[in-house]
Computed example of a mutant assay.
Amino acid sequence: MVAALTETPAAAFDPARCPRLVVKIGSSLLVDGAGQVREHWLAGVVADLAARRHAGQQIVIVSSGAIALGARRLGLDKGGRASLEDAQAAAAVGQVALAGVWQQLLGAAGLTAAQVLLTLGDLEDRRRYLNVAATIARLLDLGAVPVLNENDTVATAEIRYGDNDRLAARAAQAAGATGVILLSDVDGLYTANPASDPTAQRLPVVRALTPEVMAMATGETRSGMGSGGMAAKLLAARMAGAAGITLAICDGRVDRPLQHFAQSGGGTLFLPPRNARGRKAWLAGRITVAGTLQVDAGAAAALKRGASLLAAGVTGVDGKFRRGDVVAILGPAGELLGRGLAAYDAADAMAIRGRRNDDQAGVLGYAPRAALVHADHLVLI
C-alpha cells in the first residue's frame, strides 16, 4: 500500500527525530568503472555525515566496495566475482584499501573510523549478535564511526548475506538505530523499471510491503558491480520494518547525497508496520531458520491478534529443530507469517500437531507446555 506524505521522506531521518542512523553505500557509487575510489564524491558523503554527527546524530556506515577495489589491484576479471575464490581474494586485498580510505576521509573531518567485519553467523547467533550490539554501542558512545561490511574473505555462499542492503537493516537492529538510508544508483522504488518503462512512477512512501509492491522490484543492479538490486532493498525494508525501523532508498549519484535528500526530497520511504525491540527485533531480522511450522487459517488469524501458536492450529512440521531453535511460521498458502522460538523438538511438534492441549499429554508422555511457540517469543513479519 502506498500513500502521499505530508512531509518529505527525509524528515524521518532528521537528527532530532532519528538519534542513531545507519547509512549504506553501494559499490557502484563508491568505486568507478576502473576500480578506483570516487574520492571527491565520497568526501562529499563524509561532509554530510560529519554535519549530522555534529548535530548530535550517531552514525553507522555500511560500506560496500572491497571486492571491486581488490579485483582491480589483483587484475581479476568480472570485478572479482567470477568465482567464490576470486571474491574472497579480492575482498582480502580490498578491505585494506577500503578501511584506509574511510580512515583518511573521516579523520580529515575530525571523526574516528572503526572497522567492523561481520558474517551472517555473527548476527544470526543470539550470543554473537549481542556481542556485536555491545561493540557498536561502545564505539558510538566513544564518538567513533563504525564502518561495517560483510567479511567476504571468509564468507561462503551458505553463510553470507550476499548484499549489504540486508546487512544494513540487520546492523540497524543490532545498533539500536531508528533509521536506515540506502544510498543507491536509483532514486527510489518505481512502479516499473524506469529504464525500460517511461510510464513508471516513483513511490514517495510505502506503508506495507504487499505482494504487489514486492513485484515492482527487479533483482538487477545497474552497474553489475554489486550484489544487490531493488529486490534486496525491499527485503531490507521488510527486515527493518519488522523491527520498527524506518528505511529509505535515495539517490546517491549526486554530490552531497544526504544533504540533497534532506533539502530536495525524493527517494522512497518505507514506514515500519510495528515496533519490535530486544529479542523480537533479533527474531524479525533472522535469515536462517532451523525448521518451519505451517498453520491453518484460524491459527493465522489468532497470531495476527497477538496470540501464541497452539499445536491445534499447526498443519505441517518440517526440519530437524530442537527446543529453543528459531522456526519460521507459514500461513495456509505457504506465505511467511513470522518467526519464533520452538517450545518443542521437531519430533514432538510433529506428534502433537493438530491436537488440542488436553490430548497432548497422552501423546508426549509428559505435561504439555502452554504453546508450541509462545507469543513472547514470536514476531510477525
Rank of each mutant, 00 (worst) to 15 (best):
R53I: 00
R253M: 13
A47G: 15
H40T: 15
A232Y: 00
H374C: 03
G26V: 02
D359S: 12
I59L: 12
I25R: 00
D251S: 14
D318I: 00
I59F: 07
T8K: 13
Q294E: 14
G70K: 00
L5V: 13
Y161C: 04
L310Q: 02
G266I: 11
A90Y: 04
K320T: 14
P194C: 13
S63N: 07
K304A: 15
T119W: 01
A169R: 04
W282A: 04
D251T: 09
P19N: 04
G267L: 05
A82Q: 10
G334M: 08
Q115G: 07
R73Y: 10
P204F: 01
R38N: 14
A299I: 11
A215F: 13
P146H: 11
Q263T: 14
D152Q: 08
M350C: 14
Q259M: 05
M230K: 08
L341A: 13
G244K: 08
A172C: 05
Q360W: 04
A171E: 05
G313M: 10
V154H: 12
G100H: 11
V116W: 01
H260V: 03
K280E: 09
L303P: 10
G224D: 15
L130M: 14
L118T: 01
A137V: 07
G229D: 14
A109P: 09
P198E: 04
A200L: 08
V206Q: 11
R170F: 02
G278D: 14
R256G: 07
L130V: 14
L74P: 02
V93C: 10
L139G: 01
L142G: 06
A276D: 12
D251R: 10
A108T: 08
D187A: 12
R52A: 06
P204C: 02
V317K: 03
P368V: 05
P257F: 05
G241M: 09
G298M: 10
G241C: 05
R356A: 12
D197V: 09
W282C: 05
R279M: 06
L30M: 13
A109F: 08
A361T: 15
G267T: 02
K280N: 06
V101L: 15
R202G: 09
D251E: 13
M225S: 15
R52S: 03
D125H: 10
R353T: 02
L142T: 13
P257L: 05
N164Q: 06
L182Y: 03
G94P: 04
R356L: 09
A134M: 05
A144E: 12
A281G: 13
D165K: 00
V254A: 13
T119K: 00
L247R: 00
L98D: 00
V373L: 11
I59P: 04
T8Q: 14
G65K: 10
V93W: 07
G334L: 08
V205Y: 11
A300S: 14
G324E: 09
E150S: 09
T246F: 05
A97R: 12
L142M: 13
A333W: 08
A200F: 06
K24Q: 03
A155V: 08
D348V: 00
